[in-house]
Computed example of a mutant assay.
Amino acid sequence: METTEKSIEILNDLIEINNDRVAGFAHAAQELQEKDLDLRTLFMQLRDESRRNVHELGSAIHKTGGEVEMSMSGSGAIHRMWLDVKSAFSGHDRKTVLEECERGEDAIKKAYQAALSAESGLAPEVTEIVTRQQQRIIEAHNQVKALRDAED
């Protein structure tokens, strides 16, 4: 039973950071100028990806009989507040927004890496879900990083 409870806790943590990601990308898209339609489109796609992640993680929790927690983390709120402050000084600069989005992607990558560590004890079917989501997050991180690097 302890392993199931730990798995539910890990999955709820991933739901939290995906909820942070949803809010972060929605906010970042609002910070962009009209000419940055390409980034807005990307950010909305990544927001929607995290919404799908939340749904899939929630389904996995329900299958184990657990309860889904749909909150956002405190660090996510701090991350969004920092973006507000920084963008106020930067004039909603494309590179600055990309840098902050990359920072957020670094955080979610670490969360998924921790969830997949040997100590987590996730069931094989849950590990498969988390691994698949992690791969898409790594791809998104690399895409955001490449766009940021192109701004130099």
Score class of each variant (00 low, 15 high):
A146P: 00
D149Y: 01
V126S: 10
R21I: 03
V97Y: 02
N12E: 11
E128M: 14
E102Y: 08
K145Q: 07
T3I: 01
H79Y: 13
F89N: 02
R21W: 00
L98C: 04
G76H: 07
S87V: 05
V54G: 01
S71Y: 15
G74T: 08
G74K: 14
D13G: 15
R40W: 04
E5P: 06
T41E: 08
A29I: 04
M1W: 01
G65A: 12
A140M: 06
G104M: 00
R136V: 14
L147I: 08
E16Q: 13
G104R: 00
E151A: 09
E99L: 02
S73L: 10
D106S: 06
Q135Y: 04
A114G: 12
L37V: 12
L46H: 06
Q133Y: 02
A146C: 01
A29V: 08
E119K: 15
K6S: 11
G74M: 12
L98W: 06
K109P: 00
V22P: 04
M81R: 08
V126E: 10
L98G: 04
G58H: 05
R132S: 14
A118M: 11
L57I: 12
K63L: 14
V144P: 03
R103A: 11
D38S: 11
H62I: 15
L122V: 13
L11K: 06
M70F: 15
G76R: 02
S7Y: 00
S50W: 00
E125V: 15
G121R: 10
A114R: 14
D149R: 04
L14A: 08
S87W: 02
A114T: 15
F43G: 03
S59W: 00
D84R: 09
D84A: 08
N18V: 08
H141Q: 07
R148H: 05
I78K: 09
S59V: 14
L46F: 12
E34V: 11
A150M: 02
V97C: 06
V85Q: 12
M70I: 14
K145D: 02
E105P: 09
K145C: 01
D84S: 14
L32F: 07
I8K: 04
H92K: 10
